[in-house]
Write a protein that binds this DNA or RNA. Structure first.
Lengths: 207, 207
DNA sequence: TATGTTTACGGTACCGATCCGTTAATGAAT
DNA sequence: ATTCATTAACGGATCGGTACCGTAAACATA
């Protein structure tokens, strides 16, 4: 939609820094005020740019915000995991601190809430959020479950989809609750969920 | 906020049907367009009422929508349960069809999504939704878990809060997913979740 | 019964603010 | 000189909220 396609090389070229400034501003305002509350002129103003400069690049707000979301890494997907870890338990313990930090970030709850709010009225935005913030969580959980089945800590007959929903859903649901979560609580909470799902040993031995 | 408190008894009394019409219109528009998209004049128009008639009763849109939400039974809390049921399994089987019907209603997803979207920008609305749509689910789940512990199907040491989050969270998360759910799938899904939590026997014998 | 007072009601108009999308003028790079 | 990016300004629309009008419904008093 940035119309990058067949733009001729004549005349004054567009400033790539302007693209980024607009995308950043759009994401910030979306997180702060939602898709409806973020106006095009507010986005332009925060980007330090004229309104037409935005309209030349994106024809609709929905598309702009969706691309702004897509231009970010989802924070949870970006955890480098040491694949040589032997057991699922080790793998989980390796992931928990970073995951706890990610879900505790104030912005995480904000993006999640605004995204879900967009579901009804802005499907395109919902779609972008889902792909970049939710699916990575699902995939990580699915990997862990697959390993756990190999190890025998999770029974092979279990309903995988439901189990993933329970893990991811619990985290999302907990994050959205009015009572916030600090980093230490988040770690404890994540371990509790993993344990209940069979990805950590039942013994509450650590901590 | 309806200022019902010290209103003198002289003059023409307010029409209670008008209150209901406004609340219904507000809820409908909130579900359709969200808290920002629902304008006061649209609410008044749909209620077949002058704008002032709305402002006479509610001083702000946030308060009106919050009360509109509070004026609805949460659909899930209203299931009469036969407390004489012997086992948790019977209890769950008794609840599943109604719960499946409730979470499959198109309005359920809409309210949920709009509510969560309001979390960031309209705390008062979030609060009302939480109390009327989420807490009943939690309490029902907690009751079932308590029974299950007595029966021994759920280990006493389990993290109740996390387990409830997983059950409620899974349902919410599943309902919000782009792919909708029909009644039969919802029943199967609910059983899967209950089973994974230990509230139904592992054998997939029924159905 | 008849009259007056009080409040609710629907409808219209208005205010300042904000939004969107476009147009006109200016500036930069070729 | 040409071509495009950019900013500033504009017009139409809508928002939340208020003010006013004429009317309808309940009360009080006579």
């Amino acid at each position: 939609m940035t119309a990058e396609g067949a733009r001729p090389q004549r005349g004054r070229p567009r400033d790539p820094a302007t693209d980024r400034a607009i995308l950043d501003a759009a994401l910030e305002l979306f997180v702060e005020k939602g898709a409806d509350g973020a106006s095009m002129q507010a986005i332009a103003a925060r980007a330090g740019v004229g309104k037409l400069t935005v309209y030349r690049r994106w024809s609709s707000k929905e598309e702009l915000i969706a691309q702004a979301i897509e231009s970010t890494r989802g924070d949870l997907a970006a955890q480098p995991v040491d694949d040589t870890a032997a057991t699922v338990t080790e793998l989980v313990e390796q992931v928990v601190p970073a995951a706890a930090a990610a879900i505790t970030r104030p912005g995480f709850r904000a993006v999640l809430a605004q995204m879900l709010g967009s579901a009804q009225t802005h499907p395109r935005i919902m779609e972008a959020c889902w792909e970049h913030y939710i699916l990575p969580q699902r995939e990580a959980a699915a990997d862990l479950l697959a390993r756990a089945v190999e190890e025998g800590t999770v029974e092979a007959g279990a309903d995988f989809d439901a189990l993933i929903d329970m893990m991811v859903g619990a985290v999302i649901y907990r994050v959205l609750q009015p009572v916030p979560l600090d980093a230490a609580e988040a770690e404890r909470y994540l371990r509790s969920v993993y344990r209940q799902a069979g990805l950590l040993p039942a013994a509450p031995g650590r901590g």
